[in-house]
Amino acid sequence: MAEQERIVVTAVVPLDYTYNYRVGPYLERYIQELGGKKIMAIKCGGCGKVVVPPRKVCGECNRVMDEWVEVGPEGTVENYTVGHVTLNKGLIEPADPPVTLALIKLDGATSFLAGEVRGIDPADLKNGLRVKAVFTDPAENSLTDLDHFEPAG
C-alpha cells in the first residue's frame, strides 16, 4: 500500500482542571501550630521515629501514629542542591541568583524536611551546616508560615 496522505490536526484544549484537596487532621494541626512558630512532628509508638511533616501511618511498622512532639526550630543540613534553574509549570527557567534546596534534620526529628536555605552564599552550603527555621510574621495560617531556613547562631 502506498504511503498514506497524513493529516495531523493539533488540538489545544482551552481549559484547565481545578481540584480542591482536604489536608486531613495531621496537616491541619501542623499548619495551625506553625502559626505559633512551632514545628510539630508525629512520633511512631512502634519504631519511635519522629517524622515531619506529620502523617497518619508509619509504613515501617504499619501503625497509626498519634503522639505529637515539637521539633526544631534548629537543625542540620543533611543533603542539598543548588538549582541553576527552576521549573515553572514543567518548563525550565534560569534561576538568577541560584536557588538552594536542603534536606534538614530538625533537632528531635528522625526524618529530613525539605526547605530553602537563605542568607548564605550557595557555594558555602555544606552537609552538617546548622540552620534554624524562619517563620512568616505575622503568621498567615498557611504551610508557608515556615518560610525558609538560615544559618544558625
Binding site: V13, T18, N20, Y21, R22, V23, I31, K89
Partner: peptide, 11 residues
C-alpha cells in the same frame, strides 16, 4: 479540615 488547590494544566 481545610482545602488547598491543585490543577491539571490541560492547556
Amino acid at each position: 479540615t481545610r482545602q488547598v488547590q491543585g490543577t491539571w494544566d490541560v492547556t
